[in-house]
Simulated assay, not measured.
Amino acid sequence: MTRTPERNASESRGTNVSRRLRWGLLAALGFVIVPLVYAAAVLTPVGQRVEDAALGGVRESDLFSSDTALNVISVPVILLLLVVIAAVAFARRRLAVGLGAGVVVLASAATSTLVKRIAERPEIAQSTTPNSFPSGHATIALAALFAVLMVTPRRFRPIVTLLGAGYAVFVANQTVVYGWHRVSDIVGACAIALFWLGLVRAFGPRVDRGECGDRDGRRGVRRIVTGVLVVATAVTFLVGLGALVYGVWGGGAHDHGAILVAGRMASSASVLAVVTIVWIADGMHRATRTDA
């Protein structure tokens, strides 16, 4: 009888170490992706020419006639978001988690701004579009989603994940369609948000304690969300790959419209892939029965 508490304590410590290691590895992944993408897409003539090919189709597209989704991301809205996060954390008695969520948003935004100023874009491919690495809008959209998920009870995270992922994908698409950003800018933004989320989740307070508000909810819903994320990521990637192949080799000359579609799909796939990774790292994909 005296061994049971020791075994439970040992299992708890093992789970905690596994959790920290998992999120720490994701932080390391985000940290590595930023310089790698910058070096490959911005510092080489080939990388610049490939990405700039999509910019030739920007004027041919009028899919989005409003930049409302981009204008939503502003300083007042970010401050309001922080207030809401703090309020939810206070109501759930998770002030430390709320503080960590605030760090994810503010640190991601600050890092994106700092990298944008440091990572200059050398004009080695006759590009007329100024430096934009990474995308601040995409960074904040993803960081805001991750921060909100930290303070949201687990049973509500499926719907929050779908809505937040949809908005982040929409923002990434708009920035590419308007010619504000290239695909590498979106990938860099995803990596920065992933880095800070992984860092806070690895070394910050434990988000879920196994209490009533931390129950996973119905497994059928979680299965659906997992399937939607995986299928959406795969479909956008394949559509983007097909558009790229058609744009480069389809008609014998570069079809900038098709290449723009490829850029949009690649940006969407990057956002969806990161959200899917976070969903799985959070253990929301498990189909164990934890219904209330």
Rank of each mutant, 00 (worst) to 15 (best):
G283S: 01
L163W: 02
F146D: 00
S127Q: 09
L29W: 03
A262E: 03
L194T: 07
D214R: 12
W180L: 05
E6N: 11
V207W: 00
V37L: 08
A258G: 00
A168Y: 02
W196A: 12
T161A: 02
V83E: 02
R117K: 15
R13F: 12
I159D: 09
I140Q: 05
L229D: 04
V83I: 13
L26K: 06
V274I: 15
T15D: 13
P76I: 04
L95N: 09
W249R: 10
I118H: 01
T111H: 05
F170Q: 03
S10P: 05
G188E: 07
L241E: 04
L149Q: 06
G14N: 12
G252M: 06
D52A: 10
A253G: 05
G283K: 04
V151F: 10
Q48G: 14
W279R: 06
I78V: 14
G283E: 07
V207Y: 01
A243Q: 05
R289F: 10
S66N: 10
M150F: 10
T111D: 07
S12T: 15
L260I: 05
S10N: 14
L99T: 11
L244W: 08
G30H: 06
T139A: 13
F195T: 11
P5W: 02
I159W: 10
R155D: 02
T233Y: 13
V148H: 09
A165G: 14
D214G: 07
G250L: 12
A89L: 02
R19S: 06
V207R: 15
A141V: 02
A147C: 00
S135K: 05
V160E: 08
L63R: 00
V42Q: 12
I259K: 06
G24V: 04
V72D: 08
L163A: 13
E11R: 11
G188D: 07
A87E: 02
H285Y: 04
I186Y: 07
S18K: 13
V103N: 03
R59T: 15
D208C: 11
C190Q: 04
R218Q: 07
A172K: 02
V248H: 06
I186L: 11
D282Q: 14
R264Q: 15
